[in-house]
Write a protein that binds this DNA or RNA. Structure first.
Ligand SMILES: [Mn+2]
Ligand SMILES: [Mn+2]
Ligand SMILES: [Zn+2]
Ligand SMILES: [Zn+2]
Lengths: 136, 136
DNA sequence: ATCCTACGATGGACTTCGTCCAAGTCAAGA
DNA sequence: TCTTGACTTGGACGAAGTCCATCGTAGGAT
């Protein structure tokens, strides 16, 4: 995330106070926020920022590859600013907490050739589910 | 799925024409349908079946463990009647096609102890993404 | 420093997916 | 056949997200 503003400028994007604030929220220590959580935190700094702008900016950051969308089961999408280091997720089935994890295997290699059906497999997404100590 | 109706009865559930039709739709060769797709097909056989009943029945089948929910990226949940045999999914980023696959590794074992954060990890969901031959 | 203007922001309507509820219906046991 | 509570229904409601006409402004041009 660190030089996101510079990269945006490099792509000819206007630097607005709204985009700056959204980037700052994502750059903080809070990870895996929903769009509305990002909006809430952004509005603490810039009270008039709109929901639509937060959605727009998040979508742009996803296309840029600066932020990842984390799919959830029936709940709101979560946005992951840790796009630099490949990782997977450990999710608590009780409270919904999401933690980054780094499994050691090679999941793509584990998919047999005869089960690839001619696909060009480009990525793997792994979600570990369980109960955190507090919810157990 | 095969003896689903018998198992439902065994749990003391009433057998209604609606539940029978939903089970028949899921038992067909069409897999990974959305709730509305299930409703559409069910309504071909039983025109007056309501959306609410389809949602209710699908939810009950999920709790029973007869059907799995497949999380998608921002789109409607898909329901998977193949709950007997553990498997994972290969999804085409182009057209959205979903195929069942059976990777050979042990993904749960690949998660280092120091990254489990005290969680009781119960399941792993793996999604392979890529382009199918038609979309490549 | 000021002007221009195309790109971005805004908020409210709209869509999609799903849940909830009060009222009516009916499966199945007595 | 009767009874009853579980099931179904349609419509209202809600959450998450998109769309769009209009307004505002970042940043290049002068
Ligand atoms: Mn993450
Ligand atoms: Mn499947
Ligand atoms: Zn928890
Ligand atoms: Zn395809």
């Amino acid at each position: 995330m660190s030089d996101l503003l510079g990269r945006l400028r490099g792509r000819g994007w206007r630097m607005t106070s709204q985009r700056r604030v959204v980037a700052e929220v994502l750059d903080g220590d809070h990870v895996h926020l929903t769009a509305d959580e990002v909006h809430l935190r952004a509005a603490e700094r810039l009270p008039e920022i709109s929901r639509a702008t937060v959605y727009n900016t998040l979508g742009e950051l996803v296309v840029l590859g600066e932020v990842l969308e984390v799919s959830t089961v029936g709940r709101a999408k979560r946005y992951d600013p840790n796009a630099r280091r490949p990782h997977q997720h450990l999710v608590c089935s009780g409270c919904g907490t999401v933690r980054d994890v780094h499994p050691v295997g090679n999941a793509i290699g584990d998919l047999p050739e005869e089960e690839r059906f001619g696909f060009a497999v480009g990525s793997v997404e792994i979600t570990y589910r369980g109960l955190c100590p507090a919810c157990a």
